[in-house]
Design a protein around this nucleic acid. Sequence first.
DNA 1: CTCACCATGTAACCCGTTACATGATTGC
DNA 2: GCAATCATGTAACGGGTTACATGGTGAG
Lengths: 190, 190
Amino acid sequence: MPDPVAPVSNLGFAILGLLARRESTGYEVAQRMRQPIGYFWTARHSQIYPELNRLDGAGLVEHEVIDGAGPRPTKRYRITTAGQTALAAWVVGDLEPQPVRDLEVLRLWSIWTVDPDAADDLIGRLEATHQRILDRYLEELAQITDSPGGRDPANPLFASRITLEGGIRSRRTALEWCAWMRTELAAAVR
Amino acid sequence: MPDPVAPVSNLGFAILGLLARRESTGYEVAQRMRQPIGYFWTARHSQIYPELNRLDGAGLVEHEVIDGAGPRPTKRYRITTAGQTALAAWVVGDLEPQPVRDLEVLRLWSIWTVDPDAADDLIGRLEATHQRILDRYLEELAQITDSPGGRDPANPLFASRITLEGGIRSRRTALEWCAWMRTELAAAVR
DNA sequence: CTCACCATGTAACCCGTTACATGATTGC
DNA sequence: GCAATCATGTAACGGGTTACATGGTGAG
């Protein structure tokens, strides 16, 4: 029987969430995780393959060997009932507040050491990257809102929709904040 | 002479930013970094002491041994001119977009696997933690806005003020998003 | 007497990125 | 022929957390 005290990492729950939506080969899991799933999580294949093996050993996923192109056997993974239970328990489990770590803000915290022109330029570049990401989110949301499942809380599209909405709101807020910072800089230069 | 190609880590720039504001012992740096500096970066002493030694070796900080209570010599660190130059160059340097990684959103992405009551409860707990952090930010901002340096872009308080403002805006947005998610859940249950 | 604080350091471990490794098939 | 895609894995390394280690001073 599988190890009952096997601790599952956050990456493990990310993968379980992915397989709960639809079964996949390890390769497909890696493809789906290259672009942020839930718009807030990424991983590479070098992390995913070992984690899939751990989840398999813990009985949270199971696999079936299928025909494939690789030199090693191709495996199709599926979440087990135990995996679904563990995932649901984690979702509603205790939240300890995670330490925030944001490189952009760390830079801004030392922005007083550069002259206002360079500061304004930096904030302009920040704005541009936020805008690009916002545009991408808006496109993705447009595709989801068309389908009816997005209104049903038991449908994965519902969760995709609300996390995407969170991303959109936070990027919009970041853009407003950038504009505000520029006026603060300009007000002082005068 | 110091190694000219020594790469400085993000932690290194966080420490330089701290020492650019005021000189400190390693212990004091660790104290100041326990609560997020710039409201978006933390570190422990076990990371800080080795990094201070690296910065010292690279000539970006210098130290003076002073009287102190520890079993080893107590050192007071100060940023050097080279350190100030390196810090300012990093602030305005290229930004590669950092991959987002948010545990809260990763959970929400799998919220469709639990029943709406548990989902509502989870979001309620999210709201509470955001609210607590927002309250703390607002208190800190109240202390800064009183002092006049906050209006001068060359004053460290200016940078503290704008990063704090960013934190406040993002927490307020998160709270609005939580409230919105609850209405979306309620709309579907009906 | 014990606890908290000052003060600096090291070691083990986890998580993530980059790079190395293998090998078949399909399109240019 | 060469690159891209499918397909799975390992190894080296960097950053971060937790825990171990040392020892003096002052407060309760």
